[in-house]
Amino acid sequence: MKKRGIGIGCGFYGTGYGNGFPDVSRARAKLETDGKIGIYVGATEVGQGAKTVLQQIAAEAMGVSIEDIKFYCESTENTPDAGTAAASRQTYNTGNAIKKACEALKEGLIYIAIDKLLLNSAVGIRVENKKVYLESYPQSAISFEDIAKALTEPLCFEESFTAGTTKMEEESGQGAPYWPYTFSVYGVEVEVDTQTGFVEVLKAVCAQDVGRAINPQLLEGQIDGGFSMALGYALMEDLRLTNGEIRNNRFSSYIIPTALDMPEVKKIIVEDPEVTGPYGAKGVGEPVMVAAAPAILNAIYNAVGVRMREIPVTPDRLLEALMEKE
């Protein structure tokens, strides 16, 4: 017999290294000789979209489009240390460092423009479309390219950002160990085959706190990825450790979800800007995962009335639990 059930899961995730450890990102913004903006930062693109999101932050700060950003992140030789691509920290931490470096570069450009345009103050100056000009007299403007040509030494600024956390008290664990916290809620509908023990997730929905969406499409990609990883965690993945040996050490036996196992996940992006985030953004790489697996477990209970306290809920485990219930 097939039985259906629904379930919900809520989660939160504190960003960063945490516990007062210096969680530092460094970034450099430079005016390139062609008038484009060079961003130099040791932040890895692991597939999460860091290259795109961090360029959007730089472009926003400089008033240009991402085509005018040159982004370098692949070598220790020409990039400052931006910390690890982990702990959902790159958008938040490194995004902030890039924003600060760009703001410093922008100020540098303004001071050069004051000199070149014979202005008397930085007040009322705009930096936009790769030009610097007095807002009330836009016909006199200097382009980034012309500034670059006139430079005798490179115009480059390095800035850093350190997340604000405290070390927790030893005996009580009291303190402010992480910041910011990101919230996530999943709902799912499952269908359980009581004869085979097979669980199919029919529908899923995620409402994801993002602070501010830098790139909604990449956020949706993170939600799909987080859900599929949680689906494998809840129902499939098992190394089958036997006396320390991984028995399932290839994808013919270590089963992970495929596209055929994935329901369409309805994504609801919830914006509530984080004041310390770059343009209000929070990291989502891990938050998108935490609440999904328990939603599936709660839906299984709702469908067939058995509480699965051990994961993964493989068909044999579920059949055993169903038999015990009888």
């Binding site: 919900i8 927790m168 303190g175 919230f183 996530s184 995620c206 706190d209 919830v270």
Partner: peptide, 26 residues
């Protein structure tokens, strides 16, 4: 841990939105 969540805590909104979608679609 005694940490004050002073802003950007849209959890009620997240729960409401999931609940609303579930009511309409499951």
């Amino acid at each position: 841990t005694g940490q004050l969540l002073h802003h950007s805590v849209p959890l009620v909104e997240c729960i409401d939105k999931v609940s609303e979608w579930m009511n309409q679609n499951t």
